[in-house]
């Protein structure tokens, strides 16, 4: 396991270019600036790597991964908890990370699509998605696969109808649903 110290995660350390600073401040006039909320420290383990972070408390888990840790495999399709594209596994459970502030999961272990393939070998679901052509544009795919990993762990689905129902939080606008169900069934049959 590697440990990464990431204080302030890079961004807030940056300085405004001088020219810009002046124009903005001129327009604001003498008024005092409105400060951003105080940064909060969060420790997370993402795909086996420990991170210590200082974050704007408004940072969602999704934006933390995509914008701060450069883990862009998890997708943003709505930012409103409506599509499932941002599904990742938190302590093994599938969660919509766009509706989750990073500070809510201090100490949690997170697995994203980037963490599923072990040593270059695809997770059986990843391979099944390729075999069954369970995607087109691929944008919902990381969420579908993480959701399916969670679904199989839940052991609640015993039929295709169950899969359809329990995967309905993950929208695929390309309409790959029948192939998604076939891919999940193939892996469920094996496990």
């Amino acid at each position: 396991m590697t440990e990464v110290e990431n204080p302030g995660s890079g961004r807030d350390a940056e300085k405004l270019p001088r020219a810009v600073q002046t124009t903005v401040r001129e327009r604001v006039g003498a008024q005092s600036p409105m400060t951003t909320p105080e940064a909060v420290s969060v420790r997370l383990t993402v795909n086996g790597t420990r991170h210590s972070l200082l974050l704007d408390p408004r940072t969602t888990l999704l934006d933390l991964l995509r914008e701060h840790l450069d883990l862009t495999g998890t997708k943003k399709g709505c930012d409103q908890g409506q599509c499932g594209a941002c599904t990742m596994l938190i302590d093994g459970r599938r969660v919509n990370s766009c509706l989750t502030f990073a500070v809510m999961y201090d100490g949690a272990r997170i697995t994203t699509i980037e963490g599923l393939a072990a040593d270059g070998a695809l997770h059986p679901l990843q391979q099944a998605f390729i075999d069954h052509d369970a995607f087109q544009c691929g944008y919902c795919t990381p969420g579908q696969i993480c959701s399916a990993v969670g679904l199989i762990a839940e052991r609640r689905a015993t039929s295709a109808d169950d899969i359809r129902e329990l995967m309905s939080g993950n929208i695929c606008r390309c309409g790959a649903y029948t192939n998604i169900v076939a891919a999940i069934q193939q892996v469920m049959g094996r496990s």
Binding site: G73, T112, I113, L116, A117, Q127, I130, D131, P142
Partner: peptide, 11 residues
């Protein structure tokens, strides 16, 4: 199978 499939299922 899609030649970009690996890239899409791994993120």
């Amino acid at each position: 199978s899609r030649v970009d499939g690996f890239a899409k299922v791994t993120g």
